[in-house]
Design a protein around this nucleic acid. Structure first.
Lengths: 180, 180
DNA sequence: GAGTGAAACGGAACATGTTTCCGGAACGAT
DNA sequence: ATCGTTCCGGAAACATGTTCCGTTTCACTC
């Protein structure tokens, strides 16, 4: 890869990370490229779909989230580990404005985003969930996939309500998974 | 109101109802006005924001949903009444493609839509919820507003997953509200 | 260090959809 | 029938996303 291309990709990802945190994942392409000091063509060549850009921006955070599972498996009981991880996952999804919505939008621009998230996160959660089910603290008719999808839905920011609201509702949902 | 205006409003609402069911609540304005046989200006004059049109289309269904409460209060036990009503509410939100998303989008085009839903539905659910809390079958730290918002979030259609998925997850959430 | 082909760039052009605007037609009270 | 008002239609202005292509820049070779 040519050096100028590398430079531009890095600049775009950096600008996008900034923009996503500030204006959300559907920030207009133009403002990202302006901030990065490149033309729009450059953005679209490297990231044909918006999901490609989102993935590039989030890859590191996703990896960290997956890695956290090992730590939790060895230090916490099944229920605590499960809830702690989901809280972390909630943070990942909820703090990027619009990410939760993008995950379920069906818009072609976000093609591959749900699949990518699922591929990375489902096996991670599966380990925690299997252990909790085996310990009989969680019902067995809810899959890792169900949880990832639903928590992403519930974590969607609601205008006029604080993030604390979403956290509380995620907890209610988790209570619903609990076994008496 | 002039007769031609009345006629046009009715034609637009009818066309919109059709379009919403078929293509979702974000159907392009042009296709609605074409179906109604009017110009786009006419649509925007009567319904400056898309939410105004959605409200006009759904008003009757909302009313019916609210009215259902009386019936449920007298014929079912607190828990069954609550879950039955929420199921009905779920249908309302889930069957209009994009409505759930619109409710939380924050997009100016949908301004007033969440507030309108809340104003109509919150008191209705409140009655069912109060009774369930009084009967000690439901936890007391979740408000009617919490439930309306969260169920709308969970009812959002997810590409690649059947509507049954959303129904199941709504039930898990309801279990989380239940009191041991 | 000049030459050269490939790779990458920028931004204008195009596509799609929303929203505004206004000249003129249609209404209905007089 | 007249006339002031209301309403209409659709063109134009806008906003964004996406593609395309003439030009520039790179890095390898001689």
């Amino acid at each position: 890869m040519r050096a100028d291309a590398r430079r531009n990709v890095d600049a775009v990802v950096a600008a996008a990370k900034e923009a996503f945190a500030h204006t959300g994942v559907d920030t207009p392409a133009k403002s990202i490229t302006d901030a990065a000091g490149v033309g729009v063509g450059t953005l679209y060549r490297h990231f044909p779909r918006r999901s490609d850009l989102i993935i590039a921006v989030l890859q590191q955070e996703i990896d960290e989230c997956v890695a956290a599972v090992d730590q939790l498996l060895t230090t916490k009981d099944p229920w605590t580990a499960l809830t702690a991880w989901i809280e972390r996952y909630t943070d990942l999804v909820a703090t990027k404005q619009g990410l939760a919505a993008a995950l379920h939008s069906g818009d072609a621009a976000y093609d591959g985003l749900p699949a990518h998230f699922m591929a990375a996160l489902e096996p991670a959660l599966q380990r925690l969930l299997d252990r909790a089910v085996a310990a009989r603290v969680v019902r067995d008719d809810v899959t890792a996939r169900d949880v990832i999808t639903t928590v992403a839905l519930v974590s969607q920011p609601v205008p006029g309500r604080p993030a604390e609201f979403n956290a509380r509702m995620v907890h209610v949902f988790l209570e619903g998974m609990r076994r008496a």
